[in-house]
Design a binder for these strands. Structure first.
Lengths: 178, 178
DNA sequence: AGGTGACATGTAAGATCTGACATGTCAACC
DNA sequence: GGTTGACATGTCAGATCTTACATGTCACCT
């Protein structure tokens, strides 16, 4: 269901887009929120067309199909936003490694934490670059006076910073007792 | 793969456990880190037995099968912890709602944020209760001088607090421009 | 003219996950 | 003696997701 919602949201944001555009959007701007590859996106767009949530508005060069959202699609999207409780599954490999860390001896645990930290730092740098790019070239305003996707990006950056802080504290804690 | 790792980790922590015990452990103590129902756990334990990572140590009342980890299992677990980069997929329904929020008008967006906030507050209360329970009755020490699962629980609590803070700030921001 | 690389869309096998169905044991309470 | 509820294990259909395979267009560079 959520993939559908993400696609409907992106189509609303962009006005119209091809499957290829949406695939790129997932890679670039929504990667920290939701992930999907083209092999998931193309079939889903086909199903959504069959269900009347989107339509092929035009066909461009190289077989490019330009989709746009229908009013049924808008209804579906709104209903989910307003009515859906975000009870999605919690699955974090970082947290799983953290959970299992006491199984290693302190030296190895430190190595793993340092690798974790490096990974989180890379991710934070990516998100901050995204933020900088967004604020450098102005983007069309959303309907709430908040730029589209900024709230989610802010959340992503805050959470990544928290994780980094945690990693630092965990490293310090381990180093105090060698 | 990660389900296997989580099961191996829990078996190491508990020494030995039945599929039922592990299902309960997922519900109680690892829910914020990884999720799995019994319909996933039982077949996986069977596969892991076939692969020699765990063995049925004993059979108790009511068909209860008690599993324990083998040395191959320990090797597999260690290899993952030391060698695996946590590149797991990012899929957060909370973040997806945040992303799409500007599609609503401010009043509706506020409602959604308030619901989100209530949800995060509930989750935080659960995690803090878990923390309190852990620190009330002492639990066997891990090999790193850190109690098993505490690092992950700490991470979960911090991240949930960060999300709550974000929700409050987002609400304040929306309220300033009605 | 040929090569490279971004553009563009699909399919399919296999793994993983969810939710429902199905079955049976045992202890405690009424 | 019967009911309730926790204990305990499994299967299966359908949805979702990943990875690899497969095909073809178009612009630019050499």
């Amino acid at each position: 269901m959520s993939l559908r919602i993400a696609l409907l949201g992106l189509l609303t944001a962009y006005g119209s887009a091809s499957g290829y555009d949406l695939t790129k959007a997932f890679e670039r701007s929504v990667a920290h929120v939701w992930q999907a590859g083209h092999s998931q996106i193309y079939p889903e767009l086909a199903k959504m067309t069959a269900d009347g949530l989107v339509t092929v508005e035009a066909e461009g060069a190289r077989g490019r199909k330009i989709y746009s959202i229908t009013s049924e699609g808008r209804t579906e999207l709104r209903a989910w936003l307003v009515g859906h409780d975000p009870t999605g599954p919690a699955r974090s490999e970082v947290a799983l490694q953290a959970f299992l860390l006491p199984l290693l001896d302190p030296g190895e645990a430190l190595d793993v934490l340092e690798r974790l930290k490096a990974y989180v730092e890379r991710k934070l740098a990516e998100l901050e670059a995204l933020w900088a790019a967004k604020h450098a070239s102005p983007v069309p305003e959303g309907t709430s006076g908040v730029k589209f996707g900024n709230l989610a990006l802010d959340l992503g950056i805050r959470q990544t910073r928290t994780t980094l802080q945690w990693a630092n504290d965990a490293i310090a804690q381990l180093e105090r007792r060698p």
